[in-house]
Simulated scan of single mutants.
Amino acid sequence: MFGDFMGMMGKLKETQEKVKATKERLNTVLIDESSSDGQVKVTITANREIKSITVDDSLLQDKEQLEDYLVLTLNKAIEKATNINETELAAVAKEGMPNIPGMDSLFK
């Protein structure tokens, strides 16, 4: 009985380490997103940290338009980053989970 428990605890610790390593790796995965006309470009990591924002000079004259472009473009980039992040972390978590009936549905 304790052997199974200790084995599960070891597996849990291993999975936690893999999750940590995956999060660190996701800091190096860059997502580039542009507005539809290319006037705003953003780069973020898969952990949703903004790395750069480039704005065309023509947008500097219209504050409202610039704000709209930034919101739309950043939201698209964040959505892509979130999808990558969740997919990667779910795969690591699922790999490390013991085979408990009914738990499969949590990671789909």
Results as ranks from 00 to 15, higher is better:
82 T>P: 11
86 E>F: 06
59 L>W: 06
56 D>F: 11
66 L>H: 02
21 A>F: 00
31 I>R: 10
85 N>K: 11
55 V>L: 10
10 G>C: 05
15 T>G: 01
94 K>E: 15
20 K>G: 01
17 E>N: 04
31 I>W: 15
55 V>F: 02
50 I>R: 13
27 N>E: 05
42 V>K: 13
11 K>G: 10
37 D>N: 07
71 V>A: 10
50 I>C: 13
29 V>I: 06
32 D>F: 14
26 L>F: 04
5 F>W: 02
61 Q>L: 13
63 K>A: 14
7 G>N: 04
50 I>F: 11
90 A>I: 00
80 K>G: 11
26 L>D: 06
79 E>L: 13
91 A>E: 13
24 E>M: 01
36 S>E: 15
61 Q>I: 08
77 A>I: 05
52 S>R: 10
24 E>D: 10
6 M>H: 12
65 Q>E: 11
10 G>R: 10
73 T>L: 01
36 S>I: 06
56 D>L: 09
11 K>R: 14
39 Q>M: 12
25 R>I: 02
34 S>V: 05
74 L>N: 02
34 S>T: 08
81 A>R: 03
22 T>G: 02
62 D>K: 01
33 E>Y: 04
10 G>A: 12
68 D>Q: 11
34 S>N: 11
24 E>R: 03
9 M>A: 08
43 T>M: 04
